[in-house]
Simulated assay, not measured.
Amino acid sequence: MSTPKIILASSSQTRKDLMDRLRIDYHSVVPDIDESPRGENHADELAKRLAFEKARFIAEQNPDAIVIGSDQVAWREGAPDIFIGKPLCNEKAVKQLQANSDKIVYFSTALSVQQQSTGYEQTLVEHYKVKFRKLSLPEIERYVEVEQPLHCAGSFKCESLGISLFEEMIGQDQTTLMGMPMIKLCGILRDLKILVP
């Protein structure tokens, strides 16, 4: 029996880098879905729906493939209904980091793995949180200028210079913070008889 094709339903370079760690053959296909909130009251709900829809969109076109969708929504402590999006410009990144200063920011990272031909579907949400240290405006401006984290929810890259912004990182799997919970994904792939490692 041949190994099914594996597709990552994402355009994210960070998620591709995470997949590359596994040293398995996969393809990356961008899912064309609307990522706008639809009245969700909690970051978990939004992340879960988007991960599911990304995977489903690609799985419907590739029924025999194992399709992996993931999405992440950030939120500040006490406000899981106020979603922190991607800043997309320097000014918004600076404002986000000013708002994050001295606060705990949570990350709801959803994973959906689907294979239409077998009816397999598993969708879950993992959590990670970071405590930002008190940040000065010059520090924030310098960080944004150097790292340009404009396509990152929360305006930082933890795998790079963003680590300098934190007082503490709390969670079971750091890849959850990076945008795809790899420990959970590896377990699902093994259940699907994909050899990892």
Rank of each mutant, 00 (worst) to 15 (best):
G187I: 07
S160M: 11
E145C: 00
C158I: 13
T175C: 04
L192H: 10
E139L: 13
I140H: 06
P138T: 09
M180P: 01
I188S: 13
L137Q: 10
I170T: 12
K184L: 08
F156P: 02
L192D: 07
M169C: 11
Q172D: 15
F132R: 02
M182Y: 01
Q148H: 08
L161K: 01
P181K: 02
P181V: 01
G179D: 11
S136R: 07
C158H: 03
R190C: 12
A153C: 13
M178Y: 13
L161W: 05
D173V: 04
I188E: 13
K134S: 11
L177I: 01
L195T: 15
K131V: 02
K129E: 06
L192M: 15
L177F: 10
K134H: 11
K184S: 15
G154T: 02
L137M: 07
K193M: 08
K129P: 00
I194E: 06
Q148M: 08
E141N: 13
L195D: 14
M169R: 13
S160V: 01
E168H: 08
K129A: 04
K184W: 06
M180D: 03
C152G: 00
L192T: 07
I163L: 13
I163G: 05
L150T: 07
T175M: 02
L150S: 08
F156G: 03
G187E: 14
D191S: 15
V146C: 08
L161A: 04
L150R: 08
D173C: 10
L195I: 15
E147C: 08
E168R: 12
